[in-house]
Design a protein around this nucleic acid. Structure first.
Lengths: 201, 201
DNA sequence: CTGTCAAGACGGATCGTCTCGTCTCGCTTC
DNA sequence: GAAGCGAGACGAGACGATCCGTCTTGACAG
């Protein structure tokens, strides 16, 4: 699992209980003490586990955090598709507002900031993130945009990757840098501006 | 200086030589050993300075890094305004391509990632960044966009903050997450897509 | 004489490695 | 299929190293 981490030795005898305890402990701890004070020793203690059990299965603190998110996202069963009511603007606003709500949620704020930090400094982890966590979600977004494209609501020669990053990039950035209030109204403004473009119509 | 850091005690006797040595050492060191291995002890040793001299004037590693950037940006004399040839699309492409080049530059990559990390976890530092480093640059961008607005090249009721984040957000995000190649062509695509909007015209 | 400086000692925290003795699993043997 | 065996993961924690942030020293400058 975890792309390249977490399954090195003979996996047969691995304790699933310890694995889960470590991942939950990591997620909870980072939310409580913050990224700076998150230590492997702390995770091991909280999980009731020897340090070696962590070092045996994960190459870095970031990899543990990553797997913790992976476990969570598998728990919530990966919503099969984005809403498609035919009203692209309304659907996009709903989804971006949900993103805003998640980014603002105290439960996820610190853990996501911690994971972002690790991704920021570890290209291998960034690749794993792109493949396992961001990738599937991005595919859902593309599906919705393709559907809109078929309905003639989006420009036919649109690069969907660019479109997605133009919609979500501003939110992510405002969250990361705290460069302004991250509100549902902001999400709406981004959707409207992106759809209509900066030029007068 | 530095908004709230760096000038606490009686500033009169402060050694400018030590200050500069510390900031240059910090910037160079983080580029060499990476953010994870950047230590105050290392900075002090490289700068030929006592640790206390750092702890006396800066509250955190992030504040040192921030001041290092501040020193650099003051060195390059804050370009007075963005190009304004009348061709908005060309001007924006030129500026975004310059941003791409800077983000891709090996000299700045690690230091900027380190500063981003500190900003990510320190709201006070984020505020200082917004005020002292990002703010002035953002004002220049707004000036250029206002000029275009007057020329009727941009929608009159445009929220310029949203516009700016829609242009730069995708670049920043792709750099942070390494979610794709950060090329001049990508910058061009962002500009074109943002100006025209996602809808067919 | 007061405050900054370079240098570095200090206790505490965490790192990553290692060594224990225990426990669990899967295979063999009867 | 029950009993025994061996490999490997397990919890626990000792270990030297590094870095933290504070504190002390003596030199020096205003």
């Amino acid at each position: 699992m975890t792309a390249q981490h977490g399954t090195a030795p003979g996996t047969r005898r691995r304790s699933e209980a310890s694995r889960r305890a470590i991942l939950t402990a990591a997620f909870e701890l980072v939310g409580e003490v913050g990224y700076a004070k998150l230590s492997i020793e702390g995770i091991a203690a909280r999980a009731g586990v020897g340090k070696q059990t962590i070092y045996r299965w994960w190459p870095s603190k970031g990899a543990v955090l990553f797997d913790a998110f992976l476990m969570l996202s598998e728990g919530t069963g990966d919503s099969p598709a984005l809403p498609d009511t035919g009203d692209l603007e309304a659907d996009l606003k709903a989804v971006l507002r949900a993103t805003v709500a998640e980014l603002n949620s105290p439960r996820y704020d610190e853990p996501m900031r911690a994971l972002s930090t690790e991704i920021l400094h570890d290209p291998a982890l960034a690749a794993a993130y792109a493949e396992r966590l961001d990738g599937p979600m991005k595919e859902l977004k593309k599906q919705r945009l393709r559907s809109a494209q078929r309905a003639g609501q989006l420009s036919g020669d649109l690069d969907l990757d660019v479109a997605i990053e133009m919609l979500w990039g501003p939110l992510l950035n405002r969250w990361l840098q705290r460069s302004g209030p991250l509100t549902p109204e902001y999400a709406d403004a981004v959707v409207e501006t992106a759809l209509n473009g900066l030029r007068p119509r």
